[in-house]
Design a protein around this nucleic acid. Structure first.
Lengths: 360, 360
DNA sequence: GCAAAAATTTGAATCGATCCAACAAAAGTG
DNA sequence: CACTTTTGTTGGATCGATTCAAATTTTTGC
């Protein structure tokens, strides 16, 4: 019921075939890599020998060493591997990357690891021509690790302003401005922000100093954009609560509890991710706060799910797949330059935002 | 604005470091791979030299050749790469695979290609320790290609009864039986089957001969299961229309048009995939045929989306993630044996199935 | 202080191919 | 028939590391 695979003794090398066919290894190699330059008679003889000995063809391990090019790009993250398949944002991004890779026939190697040490090792030893980095949490560390590998790499989302690393991202300030302006124009005056992380391992209401000291500048930029737009409508941003979440259910819910326990609960929520926004909608629905009748919400990212939730989410859409495509091409057509690209976002108005409730 | 990366002249090899530090390359190698066996003073000297020369650490290409093990498993399909991130079934499967890989620190390499030739090449040259094959369409060909690589591999979904290849799948006959019995027990007597492909590149109503000649035995098995259960309820399966789809919108809709144009349209639809079932629900909704009031539907697969559609889909759930986990472990702990595993499926009753409409 | 044991270091061999300069054989030329 | 071309073939060098038996150095024991 479980037969052993036979002849697992010694692997056959190209040299063995050459000897068996009575030719030099150079010729044997040519039979496989440039068959047109070897005489037909010889070619057949070598092929026959290979067939007879059960030779699987030139081992890519050997070829690789000589050629130097793997023809695959690595995509790395600090999250577990399943992140690539579970997270909606990552999925769209990977779709874009896939497209570019398909077009050139390149492969994709997924790199990740639970602990820091393993991650370092996996990045050190990944067989790839370059990396695309998903800089979610621990972005700077990931960049550092990758930089040591001395291969081309592109960081997704320009979390830091480090000019020595290539990056592709969106204009967070402009996008956030769009979201806040939209809500302000609808008449909202009482806002709350559910933010992504400013620094690692922290949640809760954030102070202005904490914002200044943000590690993740993407988060800070979005907040800056929100505040700029709100200020231009005469809203005192100092009074706008900003709750830092970990982009997950628990912390987002805690944030909502906090915000709606305030003396003046918001009529409009600015969420820094669609994930947060969708969790918020669910939370509000469960509490008989109708969206958008009682509370309006605008998300950020533009993941496909956002169009499907109830009500459909107004959001700042990033060109996610396009970012992925460009990142992949940047690695595939690497030209030795460091470049930072910023793409435009777009406000997609759906049903989760509307005018504020009329005061009773 | 686009500074060239400097010093791109000659890559630094371990041997260069050894020379610079005045030690043999053997010792230099040890400094990186087994630092504990080299004297501290020497170790520091070598590390310093490496640092000074900007050495990125042992190149995995070289290491690989010697070690022979890549520490990555390849997942291959005939679909484009984006299939892994777009298709719900594939996503859950990949999640399972990811889990197993994460647990052992292995990487995942995605392999695919548009045309046959490129696919062959990509499989030939993928740097992996083994393959997991997504045998959707063109499964047999994919198996053939992979077999030539002479690496361990596992086929997902035992499409063929070829005993020489390892495979993991579900008991299609039993699962289909469950689905059909469920509907028959609810009182349905007029059935239609929306099937997956029996052979390549064909859609439309299928004859009994075509069923006999099925290339994809998974499809045939499901039909056998359906028919067994229906027969046991005294239903004449010869009169049950079976429409072969390509598991996409166009062909499924065409199938529905055909089936509902019959003199005796069905009150119950057996769909061989959740995808088909969900497309059918949408089609029926658009035609004011209420599910399950007018027509009941049971799907197959148990993808997460099936629970979210309206109405939620009754389906035969495969342990998708578990299949993925097992497949990955089969490669990671390869023991040289060929094994075929069949996992159990489970009928998940949701709202898309109910009693047939009472005759008017 | 010296032999035996332990700890390091060395350098050749190996992993599995590709590349290329040199050579040999066949074909073409006058 | 000697003399270039053309076409094929050879074998050594190389890609970048790891491994291991042997050589060397250092420690230990008495």
């Amino acid at each position: 019921m479980a037969p052993r695979i036979l002849g697992n003794t010694k692997p056959i090398r190209l040299a063995d075939i050459a000897k068996a066919a009575g030719v030099s290894h150079g010729t044997a190699s040519n039979v496989f890599s440039r068959p047109e330059i070897v005489r037909e008679e010889v070619r057949e003889r070598v092929k026959a020998a290979a067939e007879a000995m059960g030779y699987a063809g030139p081992d890519p391990k050997g070829r690789l060493l000589r050629a130097g090019k793997v023809n695959a790009i690595g995509v790395a993250t600090t999250e577990p591997l399943s992140y690539f398949f579970d997270d909606p944002f990552a999925r769209v991004m990977m779709s874009g990357i896939s497209e570019a890779c398909d077009a050139t026939g390149a492969g994709i190697a997924l790199v990740s690891a639970g602990n820091e040490e393993k991650l370092a090792w996996n990045i050190q030893s990944a067989l790839v021509d370059g990396f695309i980095l998903f800089c979610i949490e621990g972005g700077p560390r990931l960049v550092e690790l990758t930089r040591e590998r001395k291969l081309p790499f592109v960081a997704l989302e320009l979390g830091s302003q480090d000019d020595t690393v290539s990056a592709i991202g969106v204009d967070n300030v402009a996008g956030a401005r769009l979201a806040a302006r939209h809500l302000a124009q609808l008449g909202h005056r009482r806002f709350a922000v559910l933010s992504l992380q400013f620094a690692d391992d922290r949640t809760g209401l954030v102070s202005r100093e904490q914002i200044e000291a943000a590690v993740y500048t993407g988060t800070r930029d979005r907040l800056v954009g929100y505040f700029e737009a709100l200020s231009s409508f005469g809203i005192d941003t100092a009074k706008v609560p900003v709750y830092e979440t970990e982009n997950d259910e628990a912390s987002t819910r805690a944030g909502l509890e906090t915000i709606f326990a305030l003396p003046e609960p918001p009529t409009a929520i600015l969420a820094m991710s669609d994930r947060i926004a969708m969790i918020a909608i669910e939370w509000l629905n469960a509490r008989d706060l109708a969206v958008p009748r009682d509370v309006s919400i605008v998300g950020f990212d533009g993941v496909p799910d956002a169009a499907l939730c109830e009500p459909p989410l107004t959001t700042v859409a990033q060109p996610i797949a396009e970012i992925g495509r460009r990142a992949a091409r940047r690695i595939l057509d690497f030209d030795g330059t460091v470049r930072r690209e910023t793409l435009d976002v777009e406000l997609v108005v759906r049903a989760s935002s509307g005018p504020p409730p009329t005061r009773v």
